[in-house]
Write a protein that binds this DNA or RNA. Structure first.
Lengths: 216, 216
DNA sequence: TAATAAATTTAGACAAGTCTAAATTTCCAT
DNA sequence: ATGGAAATTTAGACTTGTCTAAATTTATTA
């Protein structure tokens, strides 16, 4: 169908499109660990295949068909992550690299059966929504803890930083998906926060507060 | 680690080595759906990496390290096939292509956990033995039904032809792994056989008898 | 608004893996 | 034992995806 490289470009464009409407060559190069010149080449090929919209010097966006493909890849990635954590008992910081490979297994029937096997999960182990067979997914309102004030509370529901280091830190602090937290104090000096969670006080930096997402 | 193409070459050499000690360029080209010239090129690269033994015009064989890699790929292929049939309820004739992709997922930890998740199966859905984490596997004595005589019996335990067409035929005749069969008659004219199986008489051609394997 | 910096694209090259056509080696039958 | 057929290898070319270096376009800022 599409090559491995093409799939990775579409996926990366999809992710970057969530926060930018026209994704730049440099953004893609950074995310894909390649050079801007290589991105330009590839982007031309994807445009020829009508998978993206591209105008020289103006960045790219996904076409309808490109987005459809990207969503199927995201679906596979998140379902396999769920499988690895729920069935094979990997930790949430261990599954990303494996899912990066597994997301390219092509059979749609396979992924649909995997979905059913796991009872149609709605969120992956990091709280990201899993698109269904048609590409639709829940969009609950997630906001960084940093955006709420003292005495406000919420439920940990996602992360903005998916790095193993951050996930391990959260695990150690028991700040995991589903936990209820309440902000008890904000330190004016560095904007760090003290949270009430698991019947304990936990002090988190501004950076952590920016990368940990809750629903209210 | 190794490229996709390299892994496929090693796997093919492994399979052909089961019946030939020096695998020829043409054999490989046929199995890999490529041309002899391409095989020669690739075989040189694998020899440079010490994964195979190769002398011009003399065919190839796996080195110890090459065999180790090949066995890990075979292990992954068969475990994923088992997963697809036992957990996702695919039919035995549907899983080969999917497993061809899945066998290249690299994580050893993943495949070992998959193995455990399924309770360390010893045979895949077609009766082929699954190597364990160290590459060791059962070698039970399998022989084609064609090699036994009237009134002799055995248990269906494997196939020599893995094509979907053959597997579907067997499924329809209920000649599946584990079934007990007895030869009640051999037709001299075309060497076809009449079997007693599932309390029924089943007439199979010589070709089928050659491709269906039993243990006695 | 002109000049400089930053971003992007073009040009030309390279590695992996494949191909066709031609050359070489091996094998087999006489 | 040798001549031709079959198998294999070599030579040269192509595609995909990448790279560096140079050229071009866009953005910034003075």
């Amino acid at each position: 169908m599409n090559t491995l490289a093409e799939e990775n470009y579409l996926k990366s464009i999809y992710h970057l499109s969530l926060t930018t409407q026209n994704v730049s060559t440099n953004q893609l190069a950074a995310l894909l660990n390649t050079k801007a010149a290589s991105v330009t080449d590839m982007v031309k090929k994807l445009a020829d295949k009508q998978l993206i919209n591209y105008a020289r010097y103006q960045g790219v966006s996904l076409s309808a068909s490109g987005e459809k493909i990207a969503l199927q890849i995201v679906r596979k990635h998140r379902l396999w992550e769920y499988f690895l954590v729920e069935k094979l008992h990997f930790k949430w910081d261990e599954v990303h690299e494996m899912a990066e490979e597994m997301e390219h297994i092509s059979s749609k029937e396979l992924v649909d059966r995997l979905d059913k096997f796991m009872n149609f999960p709605k969120y992956d182990p990091h709280g990201d929504p899993i698109p269904d067979s048609d590409g639709n997914f829940n969009t609950h309102e997630l906001k960084p803890i940093a955006t709420i004030g003292v005495n406000e509370s919420g439920i940990i529901s996602g992360v903005r930083d998916h790095s193993a280091g951050f996930l391990q830190y959260l695990e150690k602090q028991q700040l995991t998906i589903g936990k209820k937290i309440k902000v008890t104090e904000i330190i004016g000096y560095d904007n760090s926060m003290i949270l009430q969670a698991n019947d304990k006080q936990i002090h988190i930096s501004r950076e952590v507060a920016n990368n940990l997402l809750i629903v209210i």
